[in-house]
Write a protein that binds this DNA or RNA. Structure first.
Lengths: 144, 144
DNA sequence: ATGGGTGCAAAGGATTTGCAACATT
DNA sequence: AATGTTGCAAATCCTTTGCACCCAT
């Protein structure tokens, strides 16, 4: 149980650093993101936490994850045409999407674009860069 | 009218090069993509062409654009969390998404990743790379 | 008691599916 | 005739919205 308290401390710290007021739900969702690197969807976060927080609603998960991404406390990933997913790791790295199974994988060794401060291109203010690769993952190649 | 015939010839040629059997609908949709660089959504393609092809259905536009992207005749862009859009220009270039108005803009001068042949990373077959920038466009900054 | 946070139910919207009609070879 | 293409209607699924309740300050 002390493990859990520590995790939640880290989550709370992260929220405060990003200017987000911690609530029970927000801390648990951030804790989930900080301990699961599976690029979860709203549904996955919801169904993983709804037992722990009995009253949790999907709406709150939607609101919270959106809030996180607006405060750069998490990354919103739109690589999957069907649904959005989130990443607790906000350091620049490449995401790979498997068109067969929908899985999202981190490519840590590929060079990812690094966001410079105050970038403006042709008058447009840029504040996020993401590099997406798409293809067929190792598992899906094996089974087909 | 001869202009139109020329356009459609180019569209037909492109379809054949990509191994897609040309039909009236497919040629018109490809022609639309090859003459409009606005990153249209399914709805935009549909409502632009439904007067010209009276019987056109949204289903066909969905099917056709998906087919195009599978055959690399067009690019499916998932930068907008709410809807997919398409680009007839398949040369590597960066896409910018305005979070305010949802517009997608090409950044032709930014260096974009170029897809090498037969790329495999950690066993995963990569066959597409896209670099997305997000922020607030020049117009939306002006009005806020 | 005030303001933000939460959650339910309903609405909205994009996309897919099943199937019948149609066109083309 | 056979095969692939189209299009309608319905279904599905993700996400947002409106509103009421609740909690903490």
């Amino acid at each position: 149980m002390s493990r859990n308290i520590n995790h939640n401390d880290a989550a709370t710290k992260r929220l405060l650093e990003c200017g987000i007021k911690p609530s029970v739900q927000r801390v648990e969702i951030m804790n989930y993101l900080m301990t699961h690197f599976t690029h979860p969807t709203v549904e996955e976060v919801y169904s993983s936490l709804c037992h722990k927080i009995q009253t949790l609603s999907r709406t709150t998960v939607y609101n919270t994850l959106r809030l996180f991404s607006e405060h750069k406390a998490a990354l919103m990933i739109t690589i999957d045409e069907h649904r959005v997913c989130y990443d607790g790791d906000t350091h620049p790295h490449v995401h790979f999407y498997c068109k067969e199974c929908g899985k999202v994988i981190d490519f840590m060794n590929e060079s990812a674009p690094v966001m410079p401060a105050n970038l403006e291109i042709e008058g447009n203010r840029v504040d996020e860069m993401q590099l997406y690769y798409k293809g067929v993952c190792a598992d899906c190649q094996r089974f087909n």
